[in-house]
Structure formats: structure tokens, C-alpha cells
């Protein structure tokens, strides 16, 4: 891994080593927060921020952290950044922070963050660690934005809160045979099917 150029740490994480599709990490929040695209984008950005900066700091402190307490040290570093995100969202985007509720706090236990600090950041220089963390977060964001896009457009007929499927297409009491929102898309279980389907497609593409 040491021969890689720094930027390849970034790109590696987005497709070939995508944390959600390949390592199957960070699924909890990928199911819980993706029914609206705006929420998914917020969550993706937050996770990218937390992963990047906690990797950076874990890597900086890697030579002074005793091995026996490294888990707790990493968790402390991660939760500092999660607290920053939480306070920021509460101050500037209160409605989104209400919708995310406990999921902001759960970034601490998001397996992607812990996986990157434990698997990469504690072994490499700060800059590659930072890029690796940003890349992992971006790969996660890509997946949950795709899931959020599908769920919002079919579940609500909207995109980022704006109606994209024309209201005139919808079924009314007078003409009941027209379009209706797909109610299943609103429920979290559909995230399982969408991510399962994405993994399926990824495997088919990767096999060729």
C-alpha cells in the first residue's frame, strides 16, 4: 500500500473498496436516514467530515497512543468530531437535526469510521489517512444518496422537497387509474432491497 500515490487512497475508497458495497459497513444509517435525499446528503457530508478528520487525528497520535487503550482513544477522537457536527446541525439546520435525531450520535458507532481508523489510519501517515477517510466517506455518501434519490422520487414523487412527478399524473377520486406513490419506498425495509440490489449490480459489473 505504501507505493500508492496519495490521491489513489481517495479514489480507491470510492469504487473498488466502497465501504458499503464491498466491506458492507455502515448499513444501519444507510437504511435509517435515506428516505429523503436532503437528509441523506446531510448524513453523507457529516460522515465524510467525521471519517476524514478522525482518521487525520488518529494518524497524528498513532505513535503516542498505547495499543491497549487505542479503541477508547479512537472513540474519544471520533466522538469529539461527532459533537462538533451535532452542535453545528442544531445551530444552523435544526429541522434536519430533528429528523436525524439519534442518528447523528450514532455516527460514533458507524462501522465505517471505526473501520478506517482501526484498519488504515493507525498505520499510515496523516495525509494518506485523511484522504482515505474522505474517500471512504464519499463512497458512503454516493451510495446513500443513490438510495435516497430512488426512495424519495418513488416514495414521495419529490426531489429535495420539490415535486418532480407532475401532480396531474396522480390518481384522484374522479380518475382512480393514474399514478400513485409507492408506499413501500417510504418504509425503511426497502433499504435492504435497494442496497442488496446495488450489491448485486456491483458484483455483476465487477465480474466482467
Amino acid at each position: 500500500m505504501s507505493k500508492l500515490r496519495p490521491t489513489s487512497y481517495l479514489t480507491e475508497q470510492i469504487w473498488h473498496g466502497n465501504q458499503v458495497l464491498v466491506a458492507v459497513l455502515g448499513i444501519c444509517s444507510a437504511l435509517g436516514v435515506t428516505n429523503r435525499l436532503s437528509v441523506a446528503i446531510t448524513m453523507g457530508l457529516s460522515v465524510t467530515f467525521v471519517t476524514g478528520f478522525s482518521s487525520l487525528f488518529v494518524s497524528w497520535l498513532r505513535n503516542v497512543t498505547p495499543d491497549s487503550v487505542r479503541m477508547i482513544a479512537q472513540l474519544a477522537i471520533i466522538s469529539v468530531f461527532v459533537i462538533i457536527i451535532d452542535q453545528f446541525l442544531k445551530a444552523y439546520y435544526f429541522s434536519i437535526s430533528k429528523t436525524l435525531s439519534v442518528f447523528v450520535g450514532l455516527i460514533i458507532t458507524n462501522c465505517i469510521v471505526m473501520g478506517r481508523t482501526e484498519g488504515m489510519a493507525k498505520n499510515v501517515e496523516p495525509l494518506p489517512a485523511f484522504l482515505d477517510g474522505i474517500g471512504a466517506g464519499a463512497g458512503y455518501m454516493l451510495v446513500i444518496c443513490f438510495v435516497g434519490f430512488i426512495r424519495e422520487i418513488f416514495g414521495f414523487g419529490q426531489l429535495l422537497g420539490y415535486q418532480v412527478i407532475p401532480l396531474s399524473w396522480y390518481a384522484t377520486p374522479e380518475s382512480p387509474n393514474l399514478y400513485e406513490n409507492f408506499a413501500l419506498m417510504v418504509n425503511p425495509p426497502v433499504g435492504f432491497f435497494l442496497i442488496g440490489g446495488l450489491i448485486w449490480m456491483y458484483n455483476i459489473i465487477g465480474r466482467k
Binding site: N187, P188, P189, F192, F193, G196, I199, W200
Partner: peptide
């Protein structure tokens, strides 16, 4: 073959969680 392992596990968990919903 492409769905084997983790893919089918996702589908199965989805069905299970639909029943719980």
C-alpha cells in the same frame, strides 16, 4: 452467483423486517 452471500442476506433481512413492520 452474483447474489450469493451478502446480497441474498440483504433481501432476506428485508423480507424479515417487512414482517416485523
Amino acid at each position: 452467483p452474483s447474489l450469493k452471500g451478502i446480497g441474498i442476506t440483504f433481501m432476506m433481512s428485508g423480507l424479515m423486517s417487512l414482517t416485523f413492520s
